[in-house]
Design a binder for these strands. Structure first.
Lengths: 349, 349
DNA sequence: CTGAAAGCGCTTACAG
DNA sequence: CTGAAAGCGCTTACAG
């Protein structure tokens, strides 16, 4: 069943059928109706390979997702897919391993599949610096800022990680916490972690204190298992902590388990804060205090920018941060009785 | 940069270049080396659209995933992707909404993309009965059994849901629980839920009791939020339950939160069992007792069957169940002091 | 072993 | 408004 069959059955040429199928002008109503009738009857759908071959290949968009376990990315994917669909665009999802090279994968895809553009969910600056210029189509990066990567034509939308991390420290400080441990991605590898750590360090300085990274910072990958083991190491080394800030909700879940396994309770003995604001954070017991990244807005800005860049021909590259929110829930204990009331129910604000 | 450029640069015809690229016999070593040299130098990669057009379209496999929030499916996808890659096959992931028609989507893809085969993660028998025969390529279904759907050419690999659910009830029974609530998918819509419920009912009968579905069964979708609300309804209606069995770990997480919000503790006041055995279940506090489905084996069997069906030309369709394991962890309290020891640390076995 | 040529299923100037 | 024809970038009989 190909376009020639339809043409024959409809009594028109393949050119006319093609024009009908593509909603091109210059077709009589009679022809249009007749062709559509046959198409419907036969359940015909054009071969996408042939179509894209002819139309110079640029078929769909590619979403490059770093890691399969990142629940925030799942939320973003879900929204982005809907947005692409609404714009009548196909989007194909490619998961790449957390420590694989997402840019190399994209270069390869660019060559063999000719996507219209790439939406990156997470990315390693080293990979981008090494290969980005080899990508021939518009690219947008989400959750990382590429502002300082010096790459022409790459846009990025992200949460201001340093500021958000600073807010967490401010909040903990306000609750009377001074001995705070940090568990997050390796700053050599994970740039968001590096920014968040900067925010922590600055916040400490703001409060006239110094963050002792040597003792109170423990790096790990973004998974529950890694969070668990990192917390075990941290709690072993620094047994006087009153609070732990994990650079991801999934990490925080592992940390919570570790705290519990060492015989402590959250938040009675140790307070805990996460990052991302994924669904599970509000169902854990206790509900996890965390920084909510706005997955919906991130997805929308990213998809719109990508669509615009494709339409207008690769733009300059913009870098924007989207608002975040500190969700004050139940996993942080105020050490200052007077402040207790203020620390509760804050999510409503 | 197309195959003609390579041919010109290498000093051979496009036919020879194509043969080299496809590892066909009948090419001199000299030609092969020369062509590969140019290919490498130019970073050339053949246009997949053209290739597939010529090769009659069948390009890659399609993985149809029902719902984006199912963590078990995530595990299976991850394994399956690796397996396809190892077999040098491409696999494209399509997420379809939990209540959208995955078979209709597949029919559409079948027509426009001509995949080699479909791997379904989850599926609604109604959709399959309505449209399955319109799919022209081999299909394998995972996590549901299609044994009784009467569909020629569809294979399925799954956990024996009824048996597994029965084991859960047996275990709770053994721990002294009699007033057990069930929270799971709507049996009209979710066949796995219906099977699990059958298992529950049978197990009650085995123990000389009757399961009162009217009072003790509350349906919901497979998400934490739905689990939470369903549990609220159930606990409201049946306030004497000593245990709740949720038909999915994500549901169980919501249930745990609901139990806690009603002022009860798990397992001291109410015991809780999940289903699936996803990562998060072992990090929750308390660690969740659950049925572990073997995502790795499911993925392996599914991919192998699909590959074989494509190779040998659509086979008959086999239906196999894969072993499961009841992971006895911390969320179930034994009501019979003597049995306490046996109920703990069971995961090790 | 190699090349010239047909053809995969479409789209799109170009005529009429 | 419609049709005949060229061409998208490949693969693969068919000759030689």
């Amino acid at each position: 069943m190909d376009i020639r069959d339809i043409a024959r059955l409809a009594g028109y040429s393949v050119g006319t059928v093609s024009r009908v199928l593509n909603d091109h002008p210059g077709v009589s109503d009679r022809a249009r109706e007749r062709v559509l009738e046959v198409v419907r009857e036969m359940g015909y759908e054009p071969n996408a390979n042939a179509r894209h071959l002819k139309m110079r290949g640029r078929a769909s968009f590619a979403i490059m997702v770093k890691g399969m376990q990142n629940m925030l990315f799942n939320d973003i994917i879900e929204k982005a897919e809907g947005l692409f669909a609404a714009a009548d665009e196909e989007a194909r999802i490619h998961f790449v391993d957390e420590d694989a090279d997402e840019v190399a994968r994209a270069i390869h895809l660019d060559r063999i599949r000719h996507p219209k553009g790439f939406l990156f969910l997470g990315g390693d600056p080293n990979n981008f610096r090494a290969g980005f210029e080899q990508i021939s189509v518009p690219c947008v990066l989400l959750t990382n800022t590429a502002e300082e990567w010096g790459l022409r034509g790459l846009s990025s939308f992200s949460t201001n990680d340093a500021e958000a991390a600073g807010c967490v420290i401010d909040y903990l400080w306000e609750c009377g916490h001074r001995r705070i441990g940090i568990i997050g991605g390796d700053r050599e590898v994970s740039e968001v972690s590096s920014h968040r750590l900067d925010g922590v360090v600055c916040a400490f300085e703001r409060h006239g204190a110094t963050f002792d990274a040597e003792r109170c910072y423990e790096p790990c990958r973004f998974s529950m298992g890694d969070g668990y083991h990192a917390a075990m190491r941290l709690l072993e080394r620094a047994d006087d902590l009153t609070a732990v800030f994990a650079f991801g909700d999934v990490i925080a879940l592992g940390v919570q388990r570790a705290i519990s396994d060492r015989g402590f309770r959250v938040p009675a003995d140790i307070s805990l804060v996460g990052f991302d604001g994924v669904d599970v954070s509000q169902y854990s017991v206790p509900r996890l205090t965390t920084v909510r990244q706005d997955a919906g807005l991130l997805a929308r800005k990213g998809v719109e920018a990508l669509l615009a860049a494709v339409r207008d021909g690769g733009a300059e590259g913009v870098h924007e941060s989207v608002p975040f929110r500190l969700l004050r829930r139940e996993s942080v204990l105020s050490l200052r009785p007077a402040a207790t009331a203020g620390a509760k129910g804050g999510e409503r604000s």
